[in-house]
Each structure stands twice: as structure tokens, then as C-alpha cells.
Design a protein around this nucleic acid. Sequence first.
DNA 1: CTCGACTCCTGTTAGC
DNA 2: TGCTAACAGGAGTCGA
Length: 260
Amino acid sequence: MPEIIEIEIYRRQGEAMLGRRIERVVADDDWFLKEGATAEAVAAVCEGAVVDAVRRRGKLMLVDLSSGVTLGWRYGMTGRLLVDGAAEIEHLEYSSMRNEPAWDRFVVHFDDGGSARIRDPRRLGGVSIDPDESALGVDAFDAAPAVIRDRVAVGRVALKARLLDQTRIAGIGNLIADETMWRAGLDPARPAGELSPNEQRRLATHLRAVLDDFLRDGGSHTGRLQDHRVRGGVCPRCGTTLDRREIGGRTTFSCPQHQS
DNA sequence: CTCGACTCCTGTTAGC
DNA sequence: TGCTAACAGGAGTCGA
């Protein structure tokens, strides 16, 4: 599903929108407009405006317009970006194998005949006007070891839940979290604040490596643990049956042998 | 402020 | 064969 890796791929693809003028917006799914945005308001700030920049913070894609406003594009767990009809990511884990135009929830038409659209079967994404970027923590790609120490490895909440908290560190989703803790040998249920300095460094190091690996390999589903994240799955390192638990409200797989 | 529980969405799949 | 229920997870809300 879209985590920081997929959104970064979308952002790079979205650079094809730079300098192009928006002629028309199709935003007829009210549910998809968030934080009070309406089809009328979106049309007013978009139509006639030029795309000045395409940025990203965590899982939030930001589209700066010459009208002075910024659109926030969220992809939920099944949202994909199509620019001029083409998708950089053809298929998402846990999403449909089909590809229906009826799933277009937000479409921008440029005056050159091209378009950009969010195609999201499950409608868990959304578009907002001038989203509060400061509500998101440090972007995971910029997370120095000190960020892990000061913002993640604190409190009594489970480490897994901490990693998923976008206000602490932005961009980590379920798959990146599980792969990182598996590589780092850390139990997802451990209270985040109980990590030793050495364990904090291990977490920071492995998070960095996971992000680099996943971006190189093309998605958050490319981890070594991924194929084993099923009921009865075994640890690819030692063959021990993986624990399957719900932590932080998400299905969590971990190796009882390696992770403590 | 912290933190767990709950809710939303819908395509896919497991099971009867 | 056809139906139902469970499942997937990002994000927002609510109450203790």
C-alpha cells in the first residue's frame, strides 16, 4: 500500500505537472474532499492556476499552485497517481488487480489536454486545501538518529505504534514498520521508551537501510519479511513461526526468536 | 498531553 | 454455486 516510498515515487512522477496550467477540475466525490474543502472551492483555486511545485512530507503529497494555495493529496491505502493516463506504479499490495476509470476520485485537466488523477478504489485517500503540514513530524527520509532518540524512543506506548504515529515521524506505514523492527531485532510490543541507546541506534540504522532498499526496489512491499506476513508464515532467517498480533491497531508480524 | 478503542471506506478471499 | 463475514490499513475522532 502507499507508504512514504510510494508517495515519493508519485511525487517524482508528479513533477511532470510542473509549469502546466489547470483548465478544469473534476471533484465530484464529496467524500474525497477533506478538511472542509468543496468542489466549488477547489475549482476556484485551481482553474487558471499553474503548478509551481510538487512536494512531499511523509505520506502527504503537496501541490503548490500559482494561485497561492497548496493542495494536499492523500492516497490512503489503495490510491494511485496517474499523469497523462500513465501510472508509475501499476499495482498496489492489498488493492484490486483491476484498473477502473470509475475509481477516479479527483481529476485535474491541464490546458494542454493532459491530466493528473488520483485513482482510489477504496476511497481512503483525499484532497484538501492548504493542509497543516506542521501537524506531521520529521519526514522519515530526514530522520537522523537523534530524531529516533528524541521523538520515537519515548513513552510507554508500543514501539510499533510509535513508528506509525505520523506526528512523531512522518511516512512509516505498516510494512516499513514490520520490516524495520524485524531487521533491527526489536519486539514491536516493547514500550518505546525502554529502548537502550544501542537499540535506538540499531533502529535508526535499519530504518535508513529499509527506506533506501525499498526505494531502490520500487515499493514498500519489497521487504524480505513481506512474503511471510501471512497466517502461519515463518521467519525467513530461522524458520520459526512468526507471531501474528494486533499492535497499534494494525496486524503485526514478528519473529519471537530474533526480536526482543 | 497521552493513548487505546473505534470508525470510515470497498475489493478480495476464506469458509460454509 | 452463491452467499456472508472477515480482512486489509491510513487517518480522524472520542473518551478516559
